[in-house]
Nucleic acid binder design. Structure first.
Lengths: 155, 155
DNA sequence: AGGAAGTATTTCAAGTATAAAATTTTAAGC
DNA sequence: GCTTAAAATTTTATACTTGAAATACTTCCT
């Protein structure tokens, strides 16, 4: 489906890759901005809070702070503050890990779980609308191509 | 090239789109994190500073603060601080716009321009290596598909 | 001219983000 | 058992980010 396979044979491939990167960045930021605004308006929350809640929802037994940090690819000190604020609102809590007094496991409260489910349903519907241009087969191809990039970072 | 066109005919398309989004986010964050670290180690700078310098480099006559803000899709108040810090380091400066005493145009200094060129060359080489898995034709297809998403946000 | 509405920018408060240092606890080697 | 290394988390300092309010100037309408 590539309609213009080689517009300028003298242009290096690196320029084409740079263009791809800029497009990737722009698309991601547009979608992110839209999600952030809707989360703010409809649920009075933020994207980082949503991300943390999503991670905790996928792990009902809870996650250690360091696991959360790795999973979300954000710094260690960062999750401390986000979980603090979620705890203040009664959406999450910390539990001591038995047998290791260094570690604490964060998990959702019942209230947090219910709230997250509401948010996640809206989130999925918003995304579905935003990516409506992309049919399921193209979505799958795109995912595969993107996976090829991110797989290079495994180490 | 879609090797698995319909893994579960009962799964809604929205799940496939959600997966695509998560993959998009993960890939972008991985590449961004790598670029940020390299900019820090090799040039003692940050991604937002690089982005501002790139925008100013593309517009040698300078950009108004509000134009910079729109171009980079970041908030108005945000660019103020970044340009402030670039100015402290002698990489950028503000000029009054003649005929409109509200507006100021930011542009690169000669020192800033030279520094940016060094950084941009390294940046392009890093990206080329990170996206090496993606050939130019696939890069072009990918860009087209992503453009279909971001074009929906024009208004 | 004079005022309302709009535009450009900065300031502000709160939250997010990083890297690095500090703290506390656990595990390993000898 | 004692020391040292490793691990988990928090704290610190600095920068980035947003949305909203404040400030200053411009334009438009009458």
């Amino acid at each position: 489906m590539n309609t213009d396979p080689n517009p300028d044979p003298f242009e290096p491939e690196s320029k084409e890759r740079l263009r791809l990167w800029l497009r990737l960045l722009k698309t991601t930021r547009l979608v992110e901005a839209e999600l952030r605004e809707r989360l703010r308006l409809e649920f009075a929350t933020t994207l980082p809070r949503f991300d943390v809640m999503a991670a905790l929802h996928r792990h009902p037994k809870g996650l250690k702070m360091s696991e959360l940090s790795r999973f979300l690819m954000v710094s260690n000190g960062n999750v401390t503050g986000i979980v603090d604020r979620l705890a203040e609102d009664g959406f999450a809590l910390r539990e001591q890990v038995p047998g290791d007094r260094r570690a604490a496991r964060a998990r959702l409260t019942q209230k947090g779980k219910e709230e997250f489910i509401r948010q996640a349903e809206a989130h999925e519907a918003w995304l579905d609308a935003m990516l409506a241009e992309i049919g399921p087969d193209i979505a799958s191809d795109l995912s595969t191509a993107l996976a090829r990039i991110s797989d290079k970072f495994e180490d």
